[in-house]
């Protein structure tokens, strides 16, 4: 559970620190003058979708941190632990996911520049590369099963399928969100209309890439 505890400790410390910094020097019982109320401005960059994505990524991190905690603590029991071999295809898949992330980053940049053609091209490329990654993962799972590494034959296998499967599910969820700006663009929407959505997709993909890198490293390490 150490991984989860470290994650939660950092998260809660940051969050509680921020909350307390908001409150420590305040006298809530003093009414504010209209001038003071009017003088305050909400930062324009803190939009609801952006905050929601950050909160959601915290939830996703909690999920994977718990999965990894369970994996590591089970590995410590040792005895019957037979690590899954890492097929070379996983390296290729990792490369594909990196490219998907790069493509979405480029699409985000194109959206900011208002370049509709480039945006459409890179957005579509990012999604298709992600589909390729998931297809690659399916091939990996099939290959492992054909080689006798069934989900039930060893705890290491079960964890491998569980963690990589959860990761692929999160990418599938991302692909559902990804279709929204794509459909809008293909119906003649301007780049500015989808800027927010493309930005969220790009950040989400980078984050899932980071989670994949962490998962892959832990799987290699075992």
């Amino acid at each position: 559970m150490t991984v989860t505890l470290v994650f939660l400790a950092v998260l809660m410390a940051a969050f509680a620190g921020w909350l307390i910094s908001q409150s420590v020097n305040v006298k809530p019982w003093v009414a504010a003058s209209p001038e003071a109320v009017r003088a305050h401005h909400w930062p324009a960059g803190l939009t609801a979708p952006r905050i929601a994505l950050v909160v959601f990524l915290a939830v996703v991190t909690s999920l994977f941190a718990l999965g990894v905690s369970a994996y590591l603590s089970r590995m410590e029991y040792g005895v019957d632990w037979e690590p899954v071999p890492e097929p070379g295809l996983l390296w290729l898949n990792t490369g594909v996911l990196v490219l998907a992330s790069v493509a979405l980053q480029t699409a985000w940049k194109a959206a900011r520049q208002g370049n509709g053609v480039r945006l459409m091209r890179w957005l579509a490329a990012g999604g298709l590369l992600t589909v390729a990654f998931i297809a690659g993962q399916l091939i990996v799972w099939r290959g492992l099963a054909d080689a006798g590494y069934y989900v039930a034959s060893n705890p290491a296998n079960a964890f491998f399928y569980l963690l990589t499967g959860l990761h692929a599910l999160h990418l599938l969820g991302g692909l559902i969100a990804w279709t929204r700006p794509l459909v809008r663009l293909s119906r003649g929407g301007a780049p500015g209309e989808v800027l927010g959505a493309v930005e969220l997709c790009a950040v989400y993909w980078h984050y899932l890439l980071a989670i994949w890198a962490a998962l892959f490293a832990i799987l290699l390490y075992s």
């Binding site: 006298k27 009414a31 003071a36 909400w42």
Partner: peptide, 11 residues
């Protein structure tokens, strides 16, 4: 409000 300062500026 003049007695009370500017407690209103914070988020």
């Amino acid at each position: 409000s003049s007695a009370g300062g500017t407690g209103g500026g914070r988020t």
